[in-house]
Amino acid sequence: MIVSIATPIKPTLFHTKFWSSSKPAYVLKGLGLTGKGGPIEIATITEQQLKEDPILTKLNPQKRLPFFYDPTKDLKLNESGGMIEYLLETYDTTNKLWPSPGEPTRAEFLKLLHFGPATAYHIGVPILFHYMAPEGTEATPVKVLEEKKKQWHEVVAPTYEQALDQFGGPFLLGDKWTAVDVVAGYDLMTISFAGCGKEMLDAHPKVNSYLEKISQCPLFKELYSAD
Results as ranks from 00 to 15, higher is better:
Met1Thr: 14
Ile2Trp: 08
Ile2Ser: 05
Thr7Ala: 15
Pro11Asn: 01
Leu13Glu: 10
Lys17Asn: 08
Lys17Asp: 03
Phe18Asn: 12
Trp19Pro: 04
Ser20Tyr: 13
Ser21Asp: 11
Ser21Lys: 05
Ser21Ala: 15
Ser22Glu: 07
Ser22Lys: 05
Ala25Thr: 09
Val27Ile: 15
Leu28Met: 07
Leu28Gly: 01
Lys29Met: 15
Gly30Leu: 02
Gly30Glu: 09
Leu31Ala: 10
Lys36His: 05
Lys36Pro: 03
Gly37Ser: 11
Pro39Asn: 08
Ile40Asp: 01
Glu41Ser: 05
Ile42Phe: 12
Ala43Lys: 10
Thr44Cys: 12
Thr46Ala: 09
Gln48Gly: 11
Gln48Phe: 10
Gln49Glu: 05
Gln49His: 10
Lys51Ala: 13
Lys51Gln: 15
Lys51Ser: 15
Lys51Leu: 15
Glu52Pro: 14
Asp53Ile: 03
Asp53Glu: 06
Ile55His: 14
Leu59Ile: 09
Arg64Lys: 11
Leu65Arg: 12
Phe68Pro: 04
Tyr69Thr: 02
Pro71Ser: 12
Lys73Ser: 14
Asp74Tyr: 00
Leu75Glu: 01
Lys76Asn: 08
Gly81Arg: 07
Met83Thr: 08
Met83Cys: 04
Met83Arg: 00
Glu85Pro: 06
Tyr86Phe: 11
Leu87Thr: 00
Leu87Met: 00
Leu88Met: 05
Glu89Val: 00
Thr94Lys: 04
Asn95Cys: 13
Lys96Met: 09
Leu97Tyr: 11
Leu97Cys: 06
Trp98Leu: 06
Pro101Lys: 00
Glu103Trp: 06
Pro104Gly: 01
Arg106Lys: 08
Arg106Tyr: 06
Ala107Phe: 14
Ala107Leu: 15
Glu108Val: 15
Leu112Gly: 00
Leu113Met: 14
Gly116Cys: 06
Thr119Asn: 01
Ala120Tyr: 00
His122Thr: 12
His122Ser: 10
Val125Pro: 00
Val125His: 10
Phe129Arg: 11
His130Val: 01
His130Pro: 07
Tyr131Phe: 14
Tyr131Pro: 09
Tyr131Lys: 12
Pro134Gln: 14
Thr137Ala: 04
Thr140Phe: 10
Thr140Asn: 12
Pro141Asn: 10
Lys143Gly: 14
Glu146Met: 13
Glu147His: 12
Glu147Leu: 11
Glu147Gln: 14
Lys148Cys: 01
Gln151Tyr: 08
Thr159Ala: 09
Tyr160Gly: 01
Glu161Cys: 06
Ala163Asn: 03
Gln166Asn: 11
Gly169Gln: 13
Pro170Ser: 11
Phe171Ile: 09
Leu172Lys: 09
Leu173Lys: 04
Gly174Ala: 04
Gly174Arg: 03
Lys176Ile: 11
Trp177Arg: 10
Thr178Tyr: 11
Val180Glu: 08
Val180Lys: 07
Asp181Thr: 00
Val183Gly: 05
Ala184Asn: 06
Ala184Gln: 00
Asp187Pro: 02
Gly195Lys: 03
Gly197Thr: 05
Gly197Phe: 04
Lys198Leu: 14
Leu201Val: 02
Ala203Asn: 14
Pro205Gln: 03
Asn208Val: 09
Asn208His: 13
Ser209His: 12
Tyr210Ile: 09
Ser215Asn: 04
Gln216Asp: 14
Cys217Thr: 12
Cys217Val: 15
Phe220Arg: 03
Lys221Val: 05
Glu222Met: 10
Leu223Thr: 03
Ser225Phe: 10
